[in-house]
Design a protein around this nucleic acid. Sequence first.
DNA 1: CCGGCTCCTGAGAGCGCTCTCACACTGAGA
DNA 2: TCTCAGTGTGAGAGCGCTCTCAGGAGCCGG
Lengths: 335, 335
Amino acid sequence: MSRAAGRPTLDSVAARAGVSRATVSRVVNGLAVTESSQAAVRRAIDELGYVPNHAARTLVTQRTDLIALVLPETTDRVFSDDQFFPGVVNGVSQVLEQADKQLVLMLAGSAASHARIERSIAARHVDGVLLASLHGADPLPAALARIGIPVVCNERPLGSTPLPYVGVDNLGGAAAAVGHLLDSGRTRIATIAGPQDMIAGIDRLAGYRSALHGSSRRSIVAVGDFTLDSGMAAMRQLLDDDPGLDAVFAASDLMAQGALKALRDAGRRVPDDVAVVGFDDTASARHTDPPLTTVRQPIIQIGRQMARQVLRLVAGDRIEATTTLPTELVLRQSA
Amino acid sequence: MSRAAGRPTLDSVAARAGVSRATVSRVVNGLAVTESSQAAVRRAIDELGYVPNHAARTLVTQRTDLIALVLPETTDRVFSDDQFFPGVVNGVSQVLEQADKQLVLMLAGSAASHARIERSIAARHVDGVLLASLHGADPLPAALARIGIPVVCNERPLGSTPLPYVGVDNLGGAAAAVGHLLDSGRTRIATIAGPQDMIAGIDRLAGYRSALHGSSRRSIVAVGDFTLDSGMAAMRQLLDDDPGLDAVFAASDLMAQGALKALRDAGRRVPDDVAVVGFDDTASARHTDPPLTTVRQPIIQIGRQMARQVLRLVAGDRIEATTTLPTELVLRQSA
DNA sequence: CCGGCTCCTGAGAGCGCTCTCACACTGAGA
DNA sequence: TCTCAGTGTGAGAGCGCTCTCAGGAGCCGG
């Protein structure tokens, strides 16, 4: 039979150390206390194995030390195959760990889970919210803004709710990719765009267009949904539309891999017949055949920066509404 | 200026509904209450937008409704490229959502984060713990067992701490793969094993050995760490060791992809010269060249089952210590 | 018409912590 | 010697909830 009624409390530590509860609290929270009671309290804490009760602390401080990462996609898609989500989680968790906060993961696939997440956040179950992978008409940003909790988005939220966000230079990256294709003498440059209800899809297409605009080249566009299969389908369609194309910019590495497959199936050599550039620089880009030239976005940095920003909001600081991280063209063999 | 002092409490709802705090609590928790007060309370809750304070509730019930998923690998590796982690998260989160629990993600890369996680769990910050990707000498299982919190592991924990776990039939899957290679007439069958401080690495190698044992074939082994690069290196070494080999079983799809690359570089055709079988059936297995024959493990089910088990432990039920999910050989073109 | 039963309700204690406030004690300055 | 800062400490209220317990209302049989 173990000792009755569980864990030691502030009171039991206080009793053992021969001081008041308030003094123990001061020691635990690092406030001024004489050397001697300090020592006595520390010894009592060690001997009793005291660990503060988080709920009790939360009840009075109104802080939970929890940050939510909300992924409002269908769970299948979030996890499908690109490495965006794990990278962001990684970055976020690095920063939260240093700040001694915990990460609560909320996947919002269904309408029901949407409601549940909103309720949980309205209940101030967490101190702040990170919102990733936003789609066009998502009502969550507006709902959170109404609740008035610190929120930081990944990429500029579509719709009318202005929320601080951390994004990457999609436009510049796409333009750099297309610029590289132009510089290397390609003349008929197509693009496989991403979903047009996501900033990453929209802005990368815009970057493609703006780069072509400078030259007198015509734009050739097919739209995918960032997945490999959609890239394959889009590439086939592009070849149908314009068999003479000599380059493709795909808005994700996965779609670029699909394009590579479709091109191989169609008997085109890469990069000899058709140059291919991707976007993301995921781990697999190094291993495609040929290795993929692509636009690197600093995924872990995105996570880190989002976490830093939300922590500053939680702490009551003001932050700049917009952070844009640079992208970088990585040259390999496919273009 | 907004209304003073924040959110409505049980008391304010009670006042508005003209009943006592206890009655409101009963309504909120679905206990017996007359029709009329029921209605009055519901109306008051709606009008006030009342949401229960989670910390206050936790303080008295001793439940947090939080389940931790601990990934005690270096974060880089967890997220590297295979899809195991996202799949497990997905499954776990599906089940937790239904049970109205939240998922707390804890990445234990460094020793410091290890300590932090232990502290957080010792403080009963969560109701239960899911432990994945265990490595050999990890002290966490023992530490958690000592704390006496509900824990469910992914795969049998190495070391002497007996904890309930959910695993897959690694041995049977590997044996099936090798059996298929034997059946199709391959005679010199090598394996690229996984890390030998992880169950998945150990058992898949054992499965390979046991299948070969039945025939009179010699085993040819190289060890990788589940990554593509390690698979490539291992394949090169195997070709050095035994240029006449005609089949390889790789303990992960990623290593199989590395093997595919190394074989192509060495001028071997797959499957004509060398057959290749992987393990996992990740999304990318369908897209390798040639498409990968592999052993499918039901990753999402693992997550689901782990979550179910830990919820039962939290609820005070007894559970069977061991759950083994089936694996299944998926035939494609590589073998 | 009364005792006993069931059912619902309200009062109130208490979960473990933080934080304000007042008090005791020191030492410097008048 | 007395006042006045300045410093450390303890008492106690209160965070918002659950849950026990006693009491009141309603209904039955006697």
